[in-house]
Amino acid sequence: MLKGRVWKFGDDVDTDVIIPAKYLRSVDQTVWPKHVLEGLDPSFSLKVKLGDIIVAGKNFGCGSSREQAALAIKWAGVAAVIAESFARIFFRNAINNGLPLIECRGISKLVEEGEVIAVDLDRGEVRTNNGMLRSVPLPPFLQEIVNSGGLVEYYKARKKVH
């Protein structure tokens, strides 16, 4: 069970606003969380605390395939991202790096910024001040990757060759 304070964002949050391209070519990877979501809120990285939860509208993570977008959010301390829907490459990148994502219809209207919500990842439940919502469950295939701790660990456990 996760419990965290909510930061709200709208629809179509793209990976360029999550982490602008000018920070990508960096040998020092600690740069990325320092600029997370800078395109929408320049002070977000200073305000976000370990264990906070991002709640967003539809198509979160659209745009570029940059995996730094998922890493910047995770390394900034965000415990999970809950959205109406996710863009597919961001979805894969987050799963592959062990950043929990919850696709949950109706969430953006139900919760308010700053509210503390509870998330049960195993049961796919999100409890808010205004009631409980059920998430779209992850298929068993992906649950296995998440349970392994990401795609690198999944590979090391299986070493399957096509």
């Binding site: 395939s65 940059r66 998922a70 795609l151 690198v152």
Partner: peptide, 20 residues
């Protein structure tokens, strides 16, 4: 189709990937 870095690394390692 496009993927991120870790997915592509998995393809280089195994020759395959998962798709819906």
């Amino acid at each position: 189709s496009g993927v991120g870095a870790t997915d592509l690394a998995y393809i280089l390692a195994t020759g395959g990937t998962w798709l819906k």
